[in-house]
């Protein structure tokens, strides 16, 4: 039984005409897989390799380079929350914001709540420095975030 559904395979295949080399579809494929499975299992990498005419080790090599992708031992929660720790945010309380979220959730950066709802991460510069400190919740960036507002955002996530 393949790990990747037929729909997911079709989505991956739809990227192939964009590039003269199938290997270039590696990042789009890893994104699609992680979005659905919340991690990239080894079997998924084998199946990506098969779709893209690669050796599984090539997919593994790329996947493991980017900290964005997770293996099954570090599976992501339903939502991913990033707090920026780089200089512009640090100067305006970014590290204190991260600390406070860690204390209130009992998580260390990188960990996921027991119910699998939220993964908390530190980020290097999120590119929202005018709104420091900032946080990224999945695909939405929030600026000038106080610890209380951040906890509210977390509580709103389903």
């Amino acid at each position: 039984m393949p790990v990747l559904s037929e729909t997911l395979r079709d989505k991956i295949k739809s990227y192939i005409p964009r590039y003269p080399s199938k290997q270039a579809v590696t990042l789009p494929a890893l994104h699609l897989v992680q979005e659905e499975l919340r991690c990239v299992p080894l079997e998924a990498m084998r199946e990506i390799a098969e779709l893209l005419d690669l050796h599984p080790a090539q997919v593994q090599d790329t996947m493991s380079f980017y900290g964005y992708f997770r293996d099954p031992d570090h599976k992501l929660g339903k939502h991913r929350v990033w707090i920026c720790r780089s200089l512009s945010c640090m100067l305006r309380g970014g590290e204190e914001l991260l600390r406070s979220l860690c204390d209130k959730t009992g998580l260390k950066p990188g960990e996921t709540t027991r119910d699998g709802r939220v993964t908390l991460e530190f980020a290097e510069c999120l590119g929202a420095c005018e709104g420091a400190p900032c946080m990224l919740v999945d695909e939405e960036c929030h600026m000038h975030v106080t610890p209380a507002q951040a906890m509210l955002k977390l509580a709103e996530l389903e």
Binding site: S86, L87, S88, E124, C125, G127, A128, C129, E130
Partner: peptide
């Protein structure tokens, strides 16, 4: 790939 800390003009 704007990632230089402090930079957000491309965004």
């Amino acid at each position: 790939d704007e990632s230089e800390p402090g930079t957000f003009n491309n965004r």
